[in-house]
Design a protein around this nucleic acid. Structure first.
Lengths: 233, 233
DNA sequence: TTATAAATGTGATATAAATCACACGCTTGT
DNA sequence: ACAAGCGTGTGATTTATATCACATTTATAA
């Protein structure tokens, strides 16, 4: 973590990286956040939160990409999702037992705000509209996780890789060309495959002219075909 | 569905089947619910909600057991969870696109209350404490789904069946002996197995003296062993 | 009751994907 | 510049679980 002595100077009121939910807050509520939050940064590769630790602050992601993951029994990593900016991390854990159920690690350099959980809870109780926005966010997450779950449990490896590529293209990067922010192993962990299988499918897609692949750089050449594969398998 | 002309007579204020969240509401808010809700019943086997349909009312489950499920590509059913009484159905869908993402079917005879979604949303916006309770509920659900997901994607069939048995014993029935409220096929659908594999594992557990099985009636004879199996794989 | 369908158990076989094994680049640091 | 170590591709082999096929039991209905 990079220490940041100017942190307390953050001015939430006109922060350009404010969340949709925070946009709803009254000026005095924003000030309450300002007085009880702290901006900081993480470097690519840093572990931000360990699963199992207690939550004292909620983390708001201002910029960068973060992976949400857990380690299973056999130390096998399952990546739950890639989180991009303007998102609160670990909301479901906050409203449960206050123990973080997931780990978070920075995939790129990242800037965040720590907000005291008691203040955050207070805002939810005091401002139903804020609570409503948070509910929307938690719900969207829940549905997304479910869709990933269905992809993993019902589709074969070609369908799953297709889903992952579509996910990056549409949701994360909003482009047909992008650079995967991680290794093949992590790509495999995201969709619950072995590294070798993931590789094999990617090369197959390359050979079939569906993708152009150069290391971590991927371009979708045939989006229709990709959608077909996603649907079928 | 059984028609119920006395429905409008429900008296939410002293309803003994009120949710934790509703217990927080003020008298006038409860009255608002009463004026905009309707009690009704379903028979065992009835489909209550079809995935894909629009949400106009939220369903509160007053008694009985319900399965939350979806049908995958190949018509293969994945059961997400068994929902028991005092639970709102389909909350994540409500705060998303208002389309039901899951289907619901009654596993037993069931009594429910329909509550107008606009009223429900209004209550959330007006009463942060109510919103907070709903958030807790959505979050708990989200974490539970995640745990089931991990069980299915990382464990082998013996571990998965063990998890399912523990789930019924601890969460649903709170007893070591219980009657499964569905067929072997549905049991398999809950943990993402083929019917045959599910059967085989159950008979193995029976032969090993871990369970006593008579049709749908199951008793746990060796809970420690079951936990061991769950942990290992 | 009898007939018909649905649910269940169980062996044999098929198969998708993991695992194993190893070669070939790239970094990275001394 | 070289060694040491990751990350990556690719073939051969293994394995867990689905699928198939069929017998048996249990429900449902006429």
């Amino acid at each position: 973590m990079i220490s940041d002595f100017s942190a307390k100077l953050n001015t939430c009121r006109d922060c350009s990286e404010k969340s949709c939910a925070a946009a709803i807050l009254h000026a005095r509520e924003i000030d309450l956040i300002r007085e009880n939050s702290r901006a900081t940064e993480f470097r690519k590769g840093d572990i931000m939160v360990h699963a199992g630790s207690m939550t004292s602050h909620i983390i708001y992601l201002k910029s960068g990409l973060v992976k949400e993951y857990v380690k299973g029994a056999n130390e096998k990593e399952q990546i739950l999702q890639i989180v991009s900016k303007f998102t609160y991390l670990g909301l479901p854990s906050l409203f449960g037992d206050r123990v973080n159920h997931y780990s978070y690690a920075a995939l790129t350099d990242v800037t965040v705000c720590y907000i005291d959980v008691n203040i955050f809870n207070q805002l939810i109780r005091d401002n139903g509209n804020f609570a409503y926005e948070i509910l929307i966010s938690v719900s969207r997450d829940s549905l997304n996780n479910f869709h990933r779950f269905m992809s993993q449990s019902q589709k074969k490896i070609f369908g799953r890789v297709a889903d992952a590529i579509i996910y990056f293209s549409k949701i994360i990067f909003e482009q047909e060309s992008f650079e995967l922010p991680f290794t093949r192993q992590e790509f495999a962990d995201l969709i619950g495959l072995s590294r070798e299988s993931a590789t094999r499918v990617l090369t197959k897609f390359k050979d079939d002219g569906i993708l152009s692949i150069d290391g971590r750089n991927i371009s979708i050449l045939n989006p229709e075909m990709l959608i077909q594969i996603s649907k079928h398998g």
